[in-house]
Design a protein around this nucleic acid. Structure first.
Length: 572
DNA sequence: GCCGTTTTCGGCCCGACTGTTTTCAGTCG
C-alpha cells in the first residue's frame, strides 16, 4: 500500500513550498497528505480500477496532485519532489525539532551557512555564525543551542501514562490557588493521545498576573520559556513543557475547545462557523462583533449547529460528519468496566498473591478478576506448566468459596504462548479446564508478514483460545509492531469469535486507537485489560479505556463491561 | 493547488508572544 509513502511525500512537498514562501499551496498539499493518510482504500487500486479522474475523487486531490500520484505509481518518483530534495538537501525533521526554528529560518540557515542538519547547526551556533544574520540575533543563537540540548536529553514524546499523573499534580497545585476560578487540562493530554509532547492547562481567573507569577516560580520550573498576561510556558526539571493560558469566564468554553484541539478539528469547526457567517476563536463564537457563545464547550458547539464532541474524538477523522448525522457513538467509560482478565500473580513473575489481586479488584468495585499467568515456554517469567495450572485451578476454586456471598468471582485463565507454527505451549486438555485462555506472541517477533499473519490466524482458530493479548506487539518508542496483515487478522477474529485485547500498559496500548476503530467497524469484540504484574497496576485500566474511546468504541464493543454470566458466553 | 447548499474565481483559521525590528515576520499552538 503506497498511501502512507505518498502522504509522506506530499507533507514534505508542503514543507519545501513553505520554505520558498509560496502561499496557500502548502495548505493544499498538506490536505491531500492528510486525506491519503487516513484513506482506507489503496490508491493503487483506485487508480487501477479507474484512472486519473478516479484519483481526483479523493478529497483534497485535484488535477495536479492526481498527476503526481499517477507519476509516482508509474515511475516510483515524483519529479518536483526529487528536484526539491536536490535543491534543499536538508534534514528538515531534525532541524524542526529545535524549538523556535521553523521552515523559513531553516532555509535561510542553509542558504547563508550551508546548515543541513543538527550537527551543522550546533557547530555554527557555537561559533557564533548565526547571530550576525539578518533576522537572527544573540538570543536566537542561544535558544538554538538550548533547543539542541533539549533534543539530546529528551528524545521524542512522553507516554500518556508517564505524563498524566504529573500533569494532575500540577493541576492540583494551581487549583488550590484562590485566584483560580476554573481549571482544566487541554491539548493532546485531554484528547488522551498515546504520547504527549507537552502539557496544556487552561485557567479562568480575574487576577491572571498572580496566577502567572505563581506558575513560573513553582519549584518544578527549570526555565521560563515565555511569560505574558494570558499565556506562559515553562520547561520543568522533569524535562517537559507546560503551557498555561488564562482566560475570562465568558471565554472559558471556547478557549477549552480551542486549546484541546486537535488543530485539524479546530480548522474544520472554524470553517463551519464561517459558512454560517460566524467567527470562532478562542474568545468565543461571534456574530459580527457580538459574542453569542463561549462560556461552555457545549454552548460553543451548539452555536455552530453541532452537538458536543468528546475530546478523544477530536481528530478530524470523521467525527464532524458523524455529528451532523447525529450518529456519534456513546463512548465506553471507565465506570462501565466490570473486571480485568489479564492479571499475573506471584505464581509466575507477578508480585502479589491471587487473593491480594482479588481484594484490590473488589476495592475498585469490580465484579470479577481473571488470573492469567504466563505458561511454561516463558521461563524468564516462571511460566506455569500443565500440572501447576491445575493446582492453581484448585486454589482459585477455594478462593471463590470465600467470595460466594460477595458477588465477586475469580476467573481462571492463562496467557499461553503462541509458538512459531501457531500452536500453544500448553496441552488442550488442560486449557479446556480453564474459564478462558489468553494467547500471545512472546518470541520470534521478526517473522515475515505472511508467516506472522498465518501464525496468529492459526492460533485464533484453536477452539480453546478466547483472547489474543497485545495483538500487534509494539512497545511505544522501543519496538515496532509485528508485520501483520491486520485485515486478515480482523477477518479471522470475526469468523472464529476470537476477542482482541486492548492492553492498557502505557508502553503497549495495544491495540492502538487506529486499529481499535477498524476492529469495531468489522464487528470484532474487544476486551480492555491491564496486564498487571502487581495489584496497583490494576489502576492502569484508565489508559486502555482512553484508547478504546479514541477508537470510537461503545459499551457493547467491549466484553468486560458485561456481568460475569454474560461475559462467559463470549468464550468459545 | 483545491474548492463551491450564494462562488468556476477568489478565497484559503486565528491570535499571542518573541526577537528582531522600528512596524513586523516568524513561530507556535
Amino acid at each position: 500500500m503506497e498511501n502512507q509513502n505518498l502522504s509522506k511525500i506530499f507533507y514534505e512537498i508542503a514543507e519545501f513550498l513553505e520554505m520558498d514562501g509560496v502561499r496557500f499551496k502548502p495548505y493544499a498539499y498538506k490536505k491531500a497528505a492528510l486525506s491519503l493518510e487516513s484513506l482506507k482504500e489503496d490508491v493503487f487500486n483506485i487508480y487501477k480500477n479507474g484512472d486519473n479522474k478516479a484519483l481526483q475523487k479523493i478529497p483534497g486531490v485535484g488535477e495536479n496532485i492526481a498527476g503526481h500520484i499517477e507519476e509516482y505509481l508509474k515511475t516510483g518518483k515524483i519529479k518536483i519532489y526529487e528536484e526539491y530534495k536536490k535543491r534543499l538537501p536538508l534534514k528538515i525533521d531534525e532541524l524542526m525539532m529545535v524549538e523556535g526554528l521553523g521552515l523559513r529560518k531553516i532555509k535561510i540557515l542553509y542558504e547563508k551557512l550551508g546548515i543541513k542538519n543538527l550537527k551543522d547547526l550546533e557547530k555554527s551556533a557555537k561559533n557564533h555564525k548565526i547571530s550576525p544574520l539578518f533576522g537572527f540575533g544573540e538570543k536566537t543563537e542561544k535558544n538554538i543551542l538550548q533547543g539542541i540540548e533539549f533534543q539530546k536529553n529528551n528524545k521524542g514524546k512522553m507516554l500518556l501514562g508517564e505524563i498524566l499523573p504529573k500533569a494532575k499534580n500540577i493541576l492540583e497545585k494551581l487549583k488550590n490557588l484562590k485566584e483560580v476560578d476554573q481549571i482544566s487540562l487541554a491539548g493532546s493530554l485531554r484528547r488522551k493521545k498515546e504520547t504527549i509532547g507537552d502539557i496544556d492547562i487552561l485557567v479562568v481567573s480575574k487576577k491572571p498576573k498572580i496566577v502567572m507569577d505563581f506558575f513560573v516560580s513553582m519549584p518544578e520550573v527549570k526555565k521560563v520559556l515565555a511569560k505574558g498576561e494570558t499565556k506562559s510556558s515553562i520547561y520543568t526539571k522533569d524535562g517537559f513543557d507546560i503551557d498555561l493560558r488564562v482566560v475570562s469566564e465568558k471565554s472559558y468554553g471556547s478557549a477549552l475547545q480551542y486549546f484541546t484541539g486537535s488543530k485539524e478539528h479546530n480548522i474544520a469547526l472554524r470553517k463551519i462557523a464561517i459558512e454560517k457567517n460566524l467567527k470562532l476563536s478562542e474568545y468565543g463564537v461571534f456574530k459580527g462583533k457580538k459574542q453569542i457563545a463561549g462560556k461552555t464547550e457545549e454552548e460553543v458547539y451548539k452555536a455552530i449547529g453541532l452537538h458536543w464532541i468528546a475530546p478523544e474524538l477530536r481528530e478530524n477523522q470523521g467525527e464532524i460528519e458523524t455529528v451532523f448525522k447525529n450518529e456519534l457513538p456513546e463512548l465506553v467509560g471507565l465506570k462501565d468496566i466490570k473486571g480485568d482478565l489479564h492479571c499475573h500473580s506471584n505464581w509466575n513473575g507477578g508480585k502479589n498473591s491471587i487473593e491480594e489481586m482479588a481484594e484490590f479488584a473488589i476495592k475498585m468495585g469490580y465484579e470479577y478478576i481473571g488470573i492469567s499467568d504466563h505458561t511454561k515456554f516463558l521461563r524468564i517469567e516462571n511460566g506455569l506448566n500443565e500440572e501447576q495450572l491445575l493446582k492453581q485451578n484448585l486454589e482459585i476454586k477455594k478462593l471463590n468459596e470465600k467470595y460466594k456471598n460477595k458477588n465477586f468471582r475469580v476467573l481462571h485463565g492463562c496467557e499461553a504462548n503462541i509458538m512459531t507454527d501457531g500452536s500453544l505451549d500448553i496441552k488442550d486438555e488442560v486449557l479446556e479446564k480453564l474459564d478462558y485462555v489468553i494467547a500471545g506472541i512472546h518470541s520470534q517477533l521478526k517473522m515475515s508478514k505472511n508467516q506472522m499473519t498465518e501464525r496468529l490466524a492459526k492460533a485464533m482458530e484453536n477452539p480453546n483460545i478466547d483472547i489474543i493479548s497485545h495483538p500487534t506487539g509494539r512497545l511505544i518508542g522501543k519496538r515496532d509492531e509485528y508485520q501483520l496483515d491486520f485485515d486478515k487478522i480482523l477477518e479471522t477474529a470475526k469468523n472464529t469469535g476470537t476477542i482482541l485485547e486492548i492492553n492498557s500498559s502505557p508502553v503497549r496500548l495495544d491495540l492502538k486507537d487506529f486499529y481499535i476503530r477498524r476492529a469495531k467497524n468489522e464487528g470484532v469484540k474487544m476486551i480492555i485489560n491491564t496486564d498487571s504484574h502487581e495489584k496497583n497496576q490494576l489502576n492502569l485500566m484508565e489508559y486502555g479505556v482512553s484508547m478504546a474511546r479514541r477508537g470510537w468504541t461503545e459499551k457493547k464493543d467491549i466484553i468486560n463491561t458485561l456481568p460475569v454470566s454474560e461475559l462467559l458466553k463470549y468464550f468459545k
